[in-house]
């Protein structure tokens, strides 16, 4: 058995790696949405998982791994944006993936178009706003979002509110049709 296989199976703390397997797709998608770059997202997720792993003695990662990982990714993405003084643009905005299924052609075209606008609208948000909105849509509480972003709850609420306003403006034709 290779060291990699051994590492996959368990660690010295007896914690399973299952949480990593389960959390990775969501974490990678979340990171890519924040940094707008697949390769950077992979680097970022890798580093965050590794750092959590190194602190495995302190946390119940089986229970809290995904939550802590998304939190770490949020912090790392915000730090990166601050370090690089990134201005958020719609560079790299691409058509996203349409949910599986076989909707009628018109419906599918509409979904593609709306997905494209959604991606573009997300790209226009600041990293903080994007993280706040996405964590909110994933069901995180205001307190948890505030902790992840390192801001007060009221500031987190403002970030989400502004993000929603911006998104709603961008997507108004689609939302109004609903």
């Amino acid at each position: 058995m290779s060291p990699a296989d051994s590492a996959r199976e368990s660690n010295s703390n007896g914690q399973s790696h299952d949480w990593i397997e389960l959390a990775l797709p969501r974490a990678l998608a979340f990171a890519q949405s924040l940094v707008r770059d697949l390769s950077t997202a992979e680097d970022l997720v890798h580093d965050c998982v590794f750092r959590l792993w190194q602190k495995r003695d302190h946390y119940d990662l089986t229970k809290d791994g995904q939550r802590l990982l998304l939190k770490s990714i949020t912090n790392a993405a915000i730090d990166r944006a601050r370090r690089r003084h990134l201005t958020v643009t719609d560079e790299g905005a691409t058509l996203g993936n349409i949910p599986a299924g076989d909707p009628p052609v018109f419906h599918r075209v509409l979904l593609v178009e709306m997905e494209s606008h959604l991606e573009e609208a997300l790209g226009k948000l600041s990293v903080n706003q994007r993280a706040a909105l996405q964590l909110s849509s994933l069901g995180y509480s205001l307190k948890e979002i505030a902790e992840s972003l390192g801001v007060s709850e009221s500031n987190a609420g403002v970030l989400i509110h502004r993000a929603r306003h911006s998104m709603a403006e961008h997507l108004r034709p689609y939302l109004d049709q609903d």
Partner: peptide
Amino acid sequence: VKQHLDAQAASADVRRLQERLADSLAADT
């Protein structure tokens, strides 16, 4: 937004990331 994130997660190809992590975690172990 939730649907968008779900779709992105469902289509995320994490194989290369898994391999990198497995190497890193093995080295750390």
